[in-house]
Simulated scan of single mutants.
Amino acid sequence: MKQMEVTIMGQSYLLGCPEGGEAALAEAVSQVDREMCAIRDGGKVKARERIAVLAALNLAYQLAEDGGTAAPAAQAEASAQAAAPDLGRLPDLDGLMRRLDEALEHDGHLL
């Protein structure tokens, strides 16, 4: 497993990434960063943990609204990675919270 350093909302994170999954991870990081920055820039939420939860819920809602359908190239790339989430299923909330806690371990747990 390869490691990639990424930046989300101005903070660096070192993430595990399967070989060949760099482009998909970079796109996912970009989506999360855009969503979190938009929430922060809205001015009503300041706590990083709350911003992360709201961004995760917004992204999960978008997946559910799309019915799990994505562009064919994105689906092919996602299915090529064993460690990537299946875009055809909405992840369970507990798993999502666990992944957010792991990503934000230096900031403290969400709940």
Rank of each mutant, 00 (worst) to 15 (best):
D41L: 01
L96N: 01
E35H: 00
Q75K: 15
S30T: 15
E77K: 03
V32K: 02
D86V: 06
E35D: 05
Q62C: 01
M1A: 12
M4V: 09
L93G: 10
L100T: 05
G21P: 07
R50P: 00
E5P: 00
A84Q: 07
A103V: 11
A83G: 11
S12P: 04
A71W: 03
C17G: 04
Y61M: 14
Y13F: 15
D86N: 13
L111H: 09
A56C: 04
G10A: 05
G16N: 14
Q81D: 15
A73F: 06
A103G: 15
Q75V: 15
M4I: 08
A24S: 08
L111E: 12
A84D: 09
G68P: 00
D33M: 02
L14I: 13
A60N: 02
L57K: 11
L87W: 03
L63I: 05
K46N: 10
E105M: 09
D86M: 06
R99D: 13
E65D: 06
G95V: 05
E49N: 03
G95D: 00
E35S: 05
D107V: 11
E65F: 04
A55Q: 07
G67H: 08
G67D: 10
K2C: 08
D107W: 09
L93H: 13
R89I: 01
D33G: 01
G108S: 01
L25F: 10
I51Y: 01
C37S: 15
A73C: 03
Y13P: 04
G67S: 05
A52V: 10
L25E: 09
L25Q: 07
L14M: 13
T7Y: 11
E19S: 14
D101R: 08
G42T: 15
R34H: 09
E19F: 09
E102H: 09
Q62W: 03
V32Y: 02
S79E: 15
A52R: 12
M97Q: 14
C37P: 04
V29T: 07
L90P: 03
A26M: 00
S12V: 07
H109Y: 10
V45W: 03
E77F: 04
R40T: 02
D33N: 08
R50V: 11
V53H: 05
M4K: 06
K2M: 11
D107P: 01
M97I: 15
E65Y: 00
L110W: 00
C37F: 12
E49D: 06
E22W: 03
A47Q: 10
R99I: 11
A38V: 10
A71Q: 09
A52E: 13
R98K: 11
R98E: 12
Q11K: 13
E22T: 00
E19L: 13
R89M: 06
G67T: 05
A80L: 02
L110S: 05
E27W: 04
D66V: 13
A47V: 11
E49R: 06
K46C: 08
A55D: 11
Y61A: 15
D33R: 07
R48M: 10
D41S: 00
V32D: 02
L59S: 12
R48V: 14
L57G: 14
G42F: 13
Y13R: 06
M4C: 01
M9L: 10
Q3I: 03
M4Q: 10
A60G: 04
E77L: 04
Q11H: 12
A38P: 11
K44V: 09
R99V: 13
D92A: 07
R40S: 04
Y61G: 15
L104E: 08
